[in-house]
């Protein structure tokens, strides 16, 4: 069973994402911000990370930059999932090593399509 880490400061989004991902037969863990997500990755590197952009403590962009420098941090597929939906943010995320990008709001079809695109399904 593939492991997905959801990183989002909104408990509602984490709950909705968890439901979608569990329906897609993923094992799911959660983190509320980038710092907690880095700690989770040191403990166990997930197969894929569904990553919010705007979060307190450490945002998604900063988390990704740190993650890609960690040993084994190049492995997880990164799918941004954010309300930041302009070309500038998307380009910046891809340059930092994101594999795909979901613009909120989203549904199961979109998550499925994006996960297929990055080869995790």
């Amino acid at each position: 069973m593939k492991h997905c880490l959801i990183v989002d400061d909104s408990s509602v989004i984490r709950k909705v994402s968890r439901r979608i991902l569990e329906e897609m037969t993923f094992r799911v863990s959660e983190a509320e911000n980038g710092e907690m997500a880095l700690s989770a990755c040191r403990n166990e590197m997930p197969d894929v990370i569904l990553l919010d952009w705007n979060m307190p403590v450490m945002d998604g962009y900063e988390f990704l930059t740190h993650l890609r420098r960690m040993p084994g941090g190049g492995e997880p597929k990164i799918v941004f999932c954010t309300t930041e939906n302009d070309v500038g943010h998307i380009s910046r995320a891809l340059d930092a090593g994101a594999n795909e990008y979901i613009m909120k709001p989203f549904d199961k079809d979109i998550v499925t399509a994006k996960f297929q695109e990055v080869g995790i399904m």
């Binding site: 939906n85 070309v87 891809l94 795909e100 979901i102 613009m103 979109i110 695109e117």
Partner: peptide
């Protein structure tokens, strides 16, 4: 719409072949 371009269209192709007009 944002929903339509996210169903099956890789993000790289969205950036390359589409222009954003509002939402």
């Amino acid at each position: 719409s944002q929903f339509e371009v996210q169903r099956g269209l890789p993000i790289q192709l969205l950036l390359k072949y589409f222009k954003q007009e509002g939402d």
